[in-house]
């Protein structure tokens, strides 16, 4: 699963790891303190409790420190997300149509496929539309996800350097065969992609011109 990466994979995983590590430290701290207190101050050993009403310094500390850490998480989450929102101007636009329970892809020259073929190293912008209910376009390996609606066009983008085939799943519940609504994205070398593109276009009877939105 982790063999590949898009431009976002590293930043998402880095933030995830950052939060996991911080969380583990605190979780272990809380749990250890809890267990330690329960054992150390058990009634048979410690029959006389000490009433401590509270400590304002502590309260301030354990409000302020988590808040600072949370703000850092928010900040990295936001910058990572900004990147996901800024598709390069020369990204290859592909129209994606979702319907119960299939994905369809259409290239700028009118070529239609049911697998998403993309050249490695080139940014791809998917324009997502649904013909019926809500779906969600999800490429786990690329850390890309966007809901697909019948009444508006959502978009997402990615660039992958690593040749290979990666799953596309539907992540928004859409009825009976929701779990079978899989397709794939095939990342190819530029030359393989060009060869595939011209032969597929010829077969479909459309000009093999990849007019990208500049």
């Amino acid at each position: 699963m982790f063999t590949s990466s898009s431009s976002f994979t590293n930043s998402v995983d880095a933030l995830f790891t950052y939060i996991v590590v911080l969380s583990l430290i605190v979780l272990v701290g809380i749990t250890a303190a809890m267990v330690y207190f329960v054992v150390k101050y058990r009634r048979s050993k410690n029959p006389v409790p000490v009433n401590i009403e509270g400590n304002t310094t502590l309260e301030v500390l354990w409000t302020a420190i988590p808040l600072a850490l949370f703000m850092s998480m928010f900040y990295f989450g936001w910058t990572g997300y900004k990147e996901m929102r800024s598709a390069p101007a020369d990204a290859l636009p592909v129209n994606v149509t979702a319907r119960m329970w299939q994905w369809g892809f259409e290239y700028p020259n009118g070529l239609k496929t049911d697998t998403l073929y993309v050249p490695a190293g080139r940014a791809v912008k998917v324009l997502l539309r649904s013909q019926d209910v809500n779906h969600a376009f999800f490429i786990p390996a690329f850390r890309v996800k966007k809901d697909v609606y019948p009444n508006k066009v959502n978009d997402a983008w990615f660039v992958s350097d690593r040749v290979g085939r990666y799953d596309i799943a539907c992540a928004e519940y859409c009825g009976l065969n929701h779990s079978y609504m899989y397709s794939a994205v095939q990342v190819m070398d530029q030359s393989d992609f060009d060869a595939w593109f011209s032969s597929a276009s010829a077969k479909a009877g459309v000009p093999a011109v990849l007019a990208a939105a500049k």
Partner: peptide, 17 residues
């Protein structure tokens, strides 16, 4: 804690649904 991973935007995109 796992709510934090879902609250941060970029990780949420991957983990949502």
């Amino acid at each position: 804690f796992t709510g934090l991973m879902l609250g941060a935007l970029s990780t949420n995109i991957h983990l949502q649904d």
